[in-house]
């Protein structure tokens, strides 16, 4: 799966190796970090990401279960990828 979040002030594509929302729900507390928004999709097109609009994106909670639920919700109903800006 692919996660888009801000790292070092820039939107980045992060490849998730584990597909388990419970695992990811715990580890998103490290990246992007608690209080930070993120998007997640099963796949993304190849390309260089230039930016992303995080309006309406879930925000990482300190509670891993809350994050896991947010991730599962994005997998069940993927958000539009129009929020991504590609080079």
């Amino acid at each position: 799966m692919k996660m888009v979040c801000e790292v070092k002030g820039a939107a980045r594509v992060v490849t998730t190796v584990s597909n388990d929302p419970a695992v990811l729900g715990s580890q998103v507390r490290q990246v992007p970090g608690v209080g930070q928004p993120f998007w997640m999709w099963l796949t993304l097109p190849a390309g260089t990401l230039m930016g992303a609009d995080f309006t309406g994106a879930p925000v990482v909670s300190s509670d891993a279960a809350v994050n896991a639920a947010a991730i599962q919700a994005m997998l069940d109903s993927p958000p539009s990828q129009d929020v991504l800006i590609w080079a």
Binding site: V13, V14, T15, V17, L24, S26, Q27, V31, A46, T48
Partner: peptide, 21 residues
């Protein structure tokens, strides 16, 4: 891939996610 996209081979274990910083 040439654009920096990362794909994990199935035998990968113990890694939650990876990224090109």
């Amino acid at each position: 891939d040439a654009l920096g996209g990362i794909n994990a081979v199935a035998t990968t274990m113990g890694v939650a996610f990876v990224m090109e910083a």
